[in-house]
C-alpha cells in the first residue's frame, strides 16, 4: 500500500493505465464496430490481434536498420488483416448471415482454432520481442522544471499510445457521424432492413465493416508488440479482455468501449499494486458490478427481445 503514497509511482501507474487502456481500446473498437453492424461477435478478433503482432515482428526483424520499419510493420499488419478478413467474410461468413447468431459465433470460433495453428506453423512457439520504433525509445520529462527528488520521466512509446487512442476514437467518431459512409454504418446498426430499402449495397457495407474492424485488431496487435511478448496464447488473453471491455461499456457503442478500455487499464495497473498477482479478479468483480447495475453495459442498449 505504501507504493500508493509515492507520487512518482502513482504518476507512472496513472500513465500506464491510460496507455494500456488506449491500446485495448483500439482493439475493442474493431470488435464493437463489427458487432454493431453485423450482429456478429467475432471470437477471432483475438487471433487477428495476434497475427497483427506477428506480422509487425516479421517486418521489423527483416528491415531492422531501416528508419520507419516499425510503422511499416503497423501498416502491414493492418493490411494483412484486412486481406484475411476479406477472404473470410466473402469466402465463408456471408453464407451464414441468414442463419442463427449462434452459427456465426461458432464460425468465428472455428477460425480461432484454425488460425491459432496457422500462427504456430508460420512463427513457431518462440517468444519474440519487437523493439520500440526510432524516436520513441527515450522518455519524456514531466517535471516541467520543478525541482523534484526524482524527475517524473515517462517512456515515449506508451505516451504515444496515450495520444493515439483518443485520435483513433475521435477519428472513428468523425467518420461515423460526419461522412455518408458513417451514416450508412450507423443506419445499419439501427435497422438492417432499412439499408436495403435505401438502396444501399448491404453486402458491401458488411464486408467493408468486417474488413475495417479486423484491420483495427491487426493494427492494435502491431502497436502492442513493443509492449508485450509476442507469443502463442496472446490471442486468448486479449479476447477475454475485449469481452470484459465491451460487456462493461456496452456492445456496439464506440464510447462505451473507450470508457470500458480505460477502466480496465486502471484496474489492471493499480490492481497490480494493491493485489499483486490477483489484479484479474478485480476486473471480474468490476464486470459483475456493472452487470448487476446495467445488464447491457454502461452505454449499451437492451436487446429487442430482452425479456
Amino acid at each position: 500500500m505504501s507504493m500508493l503514497t509515492n507520487p512518482t509511482i502513482v504518476f507512472l501507474q496513472f500513465m500506464n493505465s491510460i496507455s494500456l487502456g488506449m491500446n485495448l481500446f483500439i482493439i475493442a473498437a474493431g470488435l464493437t464496430l463489427i458487432f454493431g453492424v453485423l450482429r456478429v461477435i467475432n471470437f477471432a478478433h483475438g487471433v487477428f490481434f495476434m497475427f497483427g503482432a506477428y506480422v509487425c515482428y516479421s517486418v521489423v526483424s527483416r528491415m531492422a536498420e531501416t528508419a520507419g520499419a516499425f510503422w511499416l510493420g503497423v501498416l502491414a499488419a493492418g493490411a494483412a488483416l484486412a486481406v484475411i478478413a476479406f477472404i473470410i467474410e466473402r469466402g465463408l461468413l456471408h453464407y451464414l448471415y441468414d442463419k442463427e447468431h449462434l452459427m456465426q459465433l461458432l464460425f468465428t470460433f472455428a477460425i480461432v482454432l484454425i488460425m491459432g495453428d496457422l500462427a504456430k506453423m508460420i512463427w513457431g512457439t518462440d517468444q519474440y520481442s519487437v523493439p520500440k520504433p526510432e524516436g520513441l525509445k527515450g522518455a519524456v520529462d514531466f517535471s516541467f522544471g520543478a525541482d523534484l527528488a526524482m524527475p517524473l520521466l515517462y517512456p515515449a512509446y506508451p505516451l504515444m499510445l496515450c495520444v493515439l487512442g483518443p485520435v483513433v476514437a475521435i477519428g472513428m467518431w468523425l467518420v461515423l457521424s460526419k461522412t455518408r459512409w458513417g451514416r450508412v454504418i450507423r443506419a445499419a446498426t439501427q435497422d438492417r432492413e432499412m439499408l436495403a430499402a435505401l438502396g444501399m449495397n448491404v453486402p458491401l457495407v458488411y464486408t467493408a465493416v468486417f474488413v475495417a474492424g479486423s484491420a483495427l485488431a491487426g493494427i492494435g496487435g502491431a502497436l502492442a508488440a513493443p509492449r508485450v511478448a509476442v507469443s502463442p496464447g496472446m490471442d486468448v488473453t486479449i479476447i477475454v479482455e475485449c469481452f470484459i471491455i465491451v460487456i462493461i461499456g456496452g456492445l456496439g457503442s464506440l464510447w462505451g468501449s473507450f470508457l470500458g478500455a480505460l477502466i480496465l487499464g486502471f484496474v489492471n495497473s493499480f490492481g497490480i499494486m494493491i493485489f499483486p498477482n490477483w489484479e484479474l479478479v478485480l476486473s471480474y468483480v468490476l464486470m459483475l458490478l456493472v452487470l448487476l447495475w446495467r445488464p447491457w453495459g454502461l452505454f449499451g442498449q437492451p436487446e429487442a427481445d430482452g425479456h
Binding site: 477475454v240 469481452f243 460487456i247 456492445l251 452487470l291 436487446e303
Partner: peptide, 28 residues
C-alpha cells in the same frame, strides 16, 4: 445468475469470460 440475465451473444461472451476466470484461478 449473471449469465441468464443475458441472452444469445452476450450470454456466450459472459460464459467464456467466467470460464477464463476459473482457469486463471487454477493457474495462479
Amino acid at each position: 445468475y449473471f449469465c441468464v440475465k443475458l441472452t444469445d451473444i452476450y450470454f456466450a461472451m459472459l460464459t467464456l469470460a467466467f470460464a477464463m476466470f476459473v482457469w486463471a484461478v487454477a493457474f495462479k
